[in-house]
């Protein structure tokens, strides 16, 4: 019933665009796309619904399918460096070979598991630190004078205007033995010997927390800014002191922001490669590095793909948990 209405609307739009772009090349393309979409049963409402799916298909599912395909192949010295899954046999039959050895291989060597766990550990600690630093920042931004908020927001986003790599390099200059921190401490006589910070896990945490902090602050800020101030007044009115009001009102209501921010930090941090490579010590074992080794050092694209798929699957779990949480919240109507 409503579908019909949409189709009419779609027709009207088409008619309008036809008038505008008659006989132009753009009109040609439009007509062509339209015919194609109509054939596929996608018009009006259907088209609107299809856009996110097309996006997902184009930028997630198709690449994912490629990687999945490679992960089921065998490594060979050839171009491309893996076997085909589907082959035409002599009598024109299709021969499909699925090779799960790559996945079994991941289970044989505890390197992968340890690297993954270590990555998760690093990501968890970084996320927690980001939360502890980011929450008060987001909170004070959301509570700041509205005129100031945009300036503060701008300051949080500002680092993105410089290359990520440059910013990580800058940390080398700050943390190294004759870097900014050590030189200042030495100059003031606080220390006699430089403190070794580079090539340590500490440097990795500094790098990750620094790089991903904005991803924690922004969703938290968006959440806290929307928080209805009268709720806090109501709490105060009912005899609740500000600190307690924070824990019983502000904090619980900002959980969606906390989860969103944490996921935005946690997920990329798990697969982080550049920061540990530049700031970390040789013993920082992370899954990103293992993946790199598989791909570039071993030239084993199938095993590398298997590692990638495994990480993806392990990362999807927290996302799904979050989805469920959000769905529950949406059902509860407070999200």
């Amino acid at each position: 019933m409503s579908r019909k209405a949409y189709i009419t609307l779609g027709d009207r739009i088409t008619a309008a665009t036809d008038l505008v772009s008659q006989s132009s090349w753009w009109g040609q393309i439009q007509t062509w796309v339209e015919v194609l979409l109509t054939r596929l049963g996608l018009r009006g409402q259907g088209l609107v619904v299809a856009i996110p799916y097309l996006w997902l298909l184009l930028f997630f599912l198709i690449p994912f399918a490629f990687v999945l395909k490679i992960s089921l192949a065998e490594a060979v010295i050839a171009r491309p460096p893996y076997t085909a899954l589907i082959e035409w046999t002599e009598d024109a039959f299709i021969d499909i070979k699925l090779n799960i050895a790559n996945y079994l291989f991941l289970l044989q060597d505890d390197l992968y598991w340890k690297a993954y766990l270590n990555s998760v550990k690093v990501a968890l600690i970084s996320t927690a630190v980001c939360l502890f630093i980011g929450y008060p920042m987001a909170y004070s931004m959301a509570r700041a004078n509205p005129a100031w908020r945009n300036v503060l927001l701008m300051l949080v986003i500002l680092p993105f205007w410089t290359s990520f790599l440059l910013r990580v390099y800058a940390w080398i200059g700050i943390l190294k033995n004759n870097g900014v921190i050590n030189n200042i401490l030495l100059a003031f006589g606080i220390i006699d010997e430089p403190i070794v910070m580079m090539q340590t896990n500490f440097a990795v945490y500094v790098g990750i927390v620094y790089s991903y902090l904005p991803f924690m602050i922004l969703p938290l800020y968006a959440n806290l800014e929307r928080l209805d101030n009268t709720l806090l007044e109501a709490a105060a009115d009912l005899g609740c002191r500000p600190i307690k009001a924070f824990f019983s009102i502000t904090l619980p209501l900002s959980i969606p922001g906390i989860i969103a921010g944490s996921l935005l930090v946690f997920i990329p941090a798990v697969g982080e490669f550049v920061i540990p490579a530049l700031l970390g010590g040789p013993d920082t074992l992370m899954i990103g590095r293992v993946l790199w080794d598989e791909f570039f050092a071993n030239r084993d694209w199938p095993v590398a793909s298997a590692v990638a798929i495994a990480i993806l699957l392990l990362l999807i779990i927290p996302i799904m948990v979050f989805q469920r949480f959000q769905a529950k919240e949406a059902e509860a109507g407070t999200a």
């Binding site: 709720l231 009115d237 009912l238 609740c240 407070t334």
Partner: peptide, 28 residues
């Protein structure tokens, strides 16, 4: 405000969305 012997009913009601009716009333 939290020490005053007054209570307020807000125009928007300002009910705590994450608490049940019972807990909203019990809050004070």
């Amino acid at each position: 405000p939290y020490d005053r012997p007054v209570n307020m009913m807000f125009q928007s009601y300002a009910l705590f969305p994450h608490m049940t009716v019972e807990n909203n009333i019990a809050f004070g």
